[in-house]
């Protein structure tokens, strides 16, 4: 007899067979613009390939709001939940289940919720899955690295400040220790820091460039940011990373 097997594991593996690659947008600190960068990157990448976006932030999901899609959901099918498409991008978030409520759940419960979302969501065949993480290297980050394995690379977002980078640098070091592929580091909301570039060089991690501070980004949706200076600068950074 073989005991204690999780039926979601096989289903997640099957679902990922339809996914070309996974880019995880992560950070050390919160408030660095990671979700905005992730959402706008998905939008830009979708110009040349099929892209899906998965919001793995259990406590602070913001991808639906960034796509102006709060209240949208999914369609049930025998092959799983088919996510709503916004800007031609299928998106999935815990917010579609919690209905705007907070989810006061601890470590094990978070891992269960993330595995459920991965198992039930049928993005269909896509070239790339963009994953928006909460800040830090806790349950969500470790679960993502475990679930996506060799298929994923991690793109870290930091502010150029020492306060933000010192924490993000530790997250980069943890990802390196876990032998994860690192797509690079994006500096957001400021001028490019020489210290971050030299730290990246020392760690053999690509420093992809900086996106300046744009007060107009605010609460705008991805659609409203089309053609903005912010979007143009981000496009250059993603081109540096060969992600466009």
């Amino acid at each position: 007899m073989t005991e204690g097997t999780d039926p979601r594991d096989g289903l997640i593996r099957r679902r990922l067979e339809d996914t070309g690659s996974v880019v995880i947008f992560s950070s050390g600190k919160g408030g660095v613009g990671k979700s905005t960068i992730a959402a706008c990157s998905a939008y830009l990448m979708a110009g040349s390939r099929s892209v899906g976006i998965l919001d793995m932030d259990i406590h602070g999901p913001s991808i639906p709001a960034l796509f102006g899609a709060r209240g949208t959901g999914f369609r049930e099918s025998r092959d799983g939940l088919i996510p709503a498409r916004v800007e031609n991008i299928p998106l999935m978030s815990i917010d579609m289940f919690a209905g705007g409520r907070g989810l006061p759940v601890r470590g094990a419960g978070k891992v269960e919720a993330l595995k459920d979302m991965l198992a039930i969501t049928n993005f269909g065949p896509i070239d790339m899955l963009v994953v928006d993480m909460p800040p830090g290297t806790g349950d969500e980050f470790l679960t993502a690295l475990e679930m996506f394995g060799d298929r994923c690379s991690v793109l870290f977002v930091t502010q150029p400040s020492a306060l933000s980078w010192n924490v993000t640098r530790r997250a980069v070091e943890i990802a390196l220790e876990m032998k994860s592929d690192i797509a690079g580091v994006i500096q957001n909301m400021g001028k490019r820091s020489g210290r971050i570039s030299s730290d990246c060089s020392r760690m053999h991690v690509p420093s992809l460039g900086a996106v300046g501070y744009h007060s107009s980004v605010g609460d705008r949706t991805v659609r409203e940011l089309r053609g903005s200076a912010f979007m143009r600068e981000l496009k250059k950074v993603l081109e540096n990373a060969s992600l466009l």
Binding site: T2, T5, D6, P7, R8, D9, G10, L11, R13, R14, E76, S77, R78, D79, G80, A119, I120
Partner: peptide
């Protein structure tokens, strides 16, 4: 509808385990 996905997951997971166990 979810039951069909769960059934697919059960079969996929056991199939993977059987491959591993030969």
């Amino acid at each position: 509808m979810h039951e069909w996905s769960l059934a697919e997951g059960i079969i996929a997971t056991i199939s993977d385990e059987c491959s591993r166990l030969s």
